[in-house]
């Protein structure tokens, strides 16, 4: 085994063993980190691998969450069935957006704005959809929290932690194999120079569509998780552009296009934000907004001084 896989195995073992010595608070922070790591990984398939900048990934989180949530709320159908509906809906949506964008050859900033437009459009649409509670939100029944009810995905924080850990590991493995597959090489070719890739006979339209489909399907899963973890859904919250930004912060800070970047970035950012909250509370500074200012300053510094994210220079230093 090389250094890289040893490090990976140690990290995975640590994460699996974490609940043994972590309280509920630490566990919820860890779940949040994994959630962002997973969603960031999904976004990374589109941007990091295929080079399509999406700023509307909250759309897939939201639609996935609402699809599974509504099924559970109205018909009592559990998330295992809802998952497929969520994936199907999100992939369909992603393909529609991708089809429109790539057929009309929209790229770069314009593609990003298009994804924002679709997310905002859907947000306002859900605000007026009574079936899902409109702006008042949709609330899933909260069952007792000690028993593991896997069929309905209800249980103690520990269950959610392991579910998210499994998802993150799965996503990592999937992305690692994708990157080594034919599709992965095609994507990188398209990302680096689309015209050259086309000249070599790569059907860039088809491969970009594949990237969108995989990315939206993965994000849909995180939406289902979101619905059953938080149990309440508001269009204003879940579709908001700040959600999309949250999703992409992790991979951008960690390193776009790398496998570890999303995980590292999610860890750094979540710990940073929790750390700021804690230390400000300890200092007794209760000024609204001060936390975000610190957060913004750190973000600013990372973007300026580490243009490729934290992971690439770190990997070099650690010789991974």
């Amino acid at each position: 085994m090389n250094r890289r896989s040893i490090a990976l195995a140690i990290l995975a073992a640590l994460l699996i063993a974490l609940p043994a010595f972590a309280g509920n608070y630490a566990l919820s922070v860890a779940t949040l980190i994994l959630y962002f790591a997973y969603t960031g990984q999904a976004w990374n398939v589109m941007m990091g691998f295929a080079g399509q900048l999406s700023l509307g990934h909250a759309l897939y989180v939201g639609v996935g969450a609402y699809a599974a949530g509504a099924l559970f709320y109205h018909l009592g159908i559990g998330p295992w069935a809802g998952l497929w509906l969520a994936i199907a809906l999100c992939v369909a949506l992603g393909l529609v957006i991708g089809f429109l964008a790539f057929r009309f050859s929209i790229s770069g900033v314009y593609f990003a704005l298009l994804t924002i437009a679709f997310a905002e459009f859907t947000r306002i649409g859900f605000d007026h959809l009574d079936f899902t509670g409109g702006p008042g939100g949709m609330f899933l029944r909260v069952a007792q929290r000690d028993a593991w009810d896997l069929a309905n995905f209800r249980g103690p924080p520990l269950m959610y932690y392991y579910a998210m850990l499994a998802l993150t590991i799965g996503a990592f493995a999937l992305c690692a194999s994708l990157l080594k597959s034919r599709a992965g090489y095609y994507w990188q070719a398209i990302r680096e120079n689309e015209e050259a890739a086309q000249a070599l006979g790569i059907n860039s339209f088809r491969w970009k569509m594949l990237a969108v489909a995989i990315s939206s399907a993965m994000t849909a899963v995180s939406g289902v998780f979101f619905a059953f973890y938080y149990n309440n859904l508001f269009p204003e919250q879940i579709f908001h552009i700040s959600r999309s930004i949250e999703i992409i912060l992790g991979p951008v800070i960690g390193g776009v296009g790398t496998l570890f970047g999303p995980i590292l970035g999610a860890g750094v950012l979540t710990l940073l934000s929790e750390g700021i909250t804690e230390s400000l509370a300890a200092l007794g500074w209760e000024i609204p907004g001060i936390k975000q200012v610190f957060y913004g300053v750190v973000l600013f510094a990372v973007v300026i001084f580490l243009p490729h994210g934290i992971w690439p220079p770190l990997a070099k230093r650690l010789k991974l």
């Binding site: 941007m47 900048l53 700023l55 770069g108 900033v109 990003a112 930004i245 992409i248 912060l249 951008v252 776009v256 907004g289 001060i290 936390k291 975000q292 200012v293 957060y295 913004g296 300053v297 973000l299 600013f300 973007v303 300026i304 243009p307």
Partner: peptide, 17 residues
């Protein structure tokens, strides 16, 4: 582009807060 975007998002976060 995503790098520029993050920069301005960071500026926006700092300003608004």
């Amino acid at each position: 582009e995503h790098s520029q975007f993050m920069l301005l998002v960071a500026i926006a976060i700092i300003l608004v807060n």
